[in-house]
Design a protein around this nucleic acid. Structure first.
Length: 107
DNA sequence: ACAGTGACGGGTC
DNA sequence: AGACCCGCCACTG
């Protein structure tokens, strides 16, 4: 778990996202010190894709549910978010700046 | 080994 | 404001 610290941290931070909150890949990447490797964060989640990692709470900078295509169901990601009180319209999170959770700022 | 691609982000046109 | 390009690192063909 030393070499894979990157993936581990991604899982940790993602799992620490509070209920009804969301964050962006860039925020996590920045927290891990890989601000320019936001893609790796998404790739890490893709490798995880487990219940312990609420990837549905992680979206891109625009608050768009870009990763919904990788979920089981097309609308599963949106369903989960809406179940947590997050308003999602057209795959885009409303009040994204309100429910945005910054790991390096609030953690 | 090389090239293309991807759950992104920021800068530029 | 919208579209396009580059950089980043890893995986697949």
């Amino acid at each position: 778990m030393s070499d894979t610290g990157f993936f581990e941290k991604v899982y940790q931070v993602t799992a620490l996202i509070p209920y009804g909150r969301v964050t962006s890949y860039g925020a996590i990447a920045n927290y891990l010190g890989a601000s320019r490797s936001a893609r790796m964060v998404g790739w890490a989640l893709n490798n995880s894709n487990k219940a312990e990692v609420p990837a549905h709470r992680v979206v891109n900078r625009k608050g768009l549910l870009t990763g919904k295509h990788h979920f089981k169901g097309t609308n599963l990601m949106q369903q989960l978010l809406e179940s947590e009180g997050v308003v999602v319209v057209d795959n885009q999170i409303q009040d994204f700046d309100k429910i945005f959770w910054d790991p390096g700022k609030e953690l």
